[in-house]
Simulated assay, not measured.
Amino acid sequence: MIRYALTCADGHRFESWFQSASAFDTLLKSGHVSCSLCGNRDVSKALMAPSVATDRPEGSGAPAPDEGSENAAAPAGRPL
């Protein structure tokens, strides 16, 4: 499954899930993808930031203790 951020020609932004990238392309070409707000079928993918896992605690904007220094030692049990 893949989630896309989508935009219609009227500027509405929405998200939808698809079985695969090729499934999205097939559905779009056949007219089966439409705006969830107005029904417009002129839909395109919008820029979407990926979700990336980190070792930082959630909500922390500060770098992890070993970041920011090239000479910092790796914590015990953590590979370089």
Rank of each mutant, 00 (worst) to 15 (best):
Y4V: 01
P65K: 06
L80Q: 14
S30V: 05
A21P: 07
Y4F: 12
E70Y: 02
V52D: 11
P50T: 07
G11H: 00
E58P: 09
S34Q: 05
A23P: 06
R56E: 04
F14E: 02
K45N: 11
G77W: 01
L47E: 15
S22F: 08
R78S: 04
G68C: 03
D10V: 08
A72W: 12
D55F: 15
A9T: 07
M1Y: 12
E67I: 04
T26A: 09
D42E: 01
A74Q: 10
S36R: 13
P79E: 11
S16A: 13
R13S: 00
R41W: 03
L47M: 13
E58K: 11
G61I: 05
W17H: 07
L37E: 00
G31D: 11
Q19S: 07
L28H: 02
E15A: 11
G31S: 13
K45W: 15
F18D: 06
A21S: 08
T54L: 08
S34K: 06
D42G: 00
Q19R: 09
F24K: 04
C38N: 08
I2M: 14
P65A: 08
K29W: 03
L37V: 01
A76I: 09
V33C: 05
F14N: 03
W17K: 08
L80C: 11
T26Q: 10
L37Q: 00
G59D: 11
A76G: 13
D42W: 01
R56W: 05
D25L: 09
S34R: 06
R78I: 14
L27Q: 14
P57E: 13
S36M: 12
C35N: 13
R78Q: 04
Y4A: 01
F14C: 01
V33Q: 05
L80R: 10
I2G: 10
V33S: 06
R41L: 06
D25F: 06
G77L: 02
G77E: 01
A74R: 08
N71K: 01
A72I: 09
P63Y: 04
S30T: 10
E58T: 10
A5D: 08
H32Y: 10
A5H: 14
N40T: 06
S69T: 04
G31P: 09
T7R: 15
R3F: 05
Q19C: 03
A64F: 14
D10L: 13
L27S: 10
K29C: 01
P63H: 02
A64P: 05
N71A: 01
C38Q: 06
M1A: 15
D10A: 14
R41P: 03
G39C: 02
A9P: 03
L27P: 05
F24Q: 02
T26I: 07
G39N: 04
A74W: 14
D10R: 15
C35W: 11
D42C: 03
L28I: 00
A23S: 10
L28R: 04
E15C: 09
R56A: 11
P57N: 13
N71T: 04
A5V: 15
R41Y: 03
R13L: 02
S60A: 15
C35H: 12
R78D: 03
H32I: 04
G77S: 03
V43S: 11
G11A: 00
S51E: 09
A72P: 10
G31K: 15
L37M: 00
S16C: 07
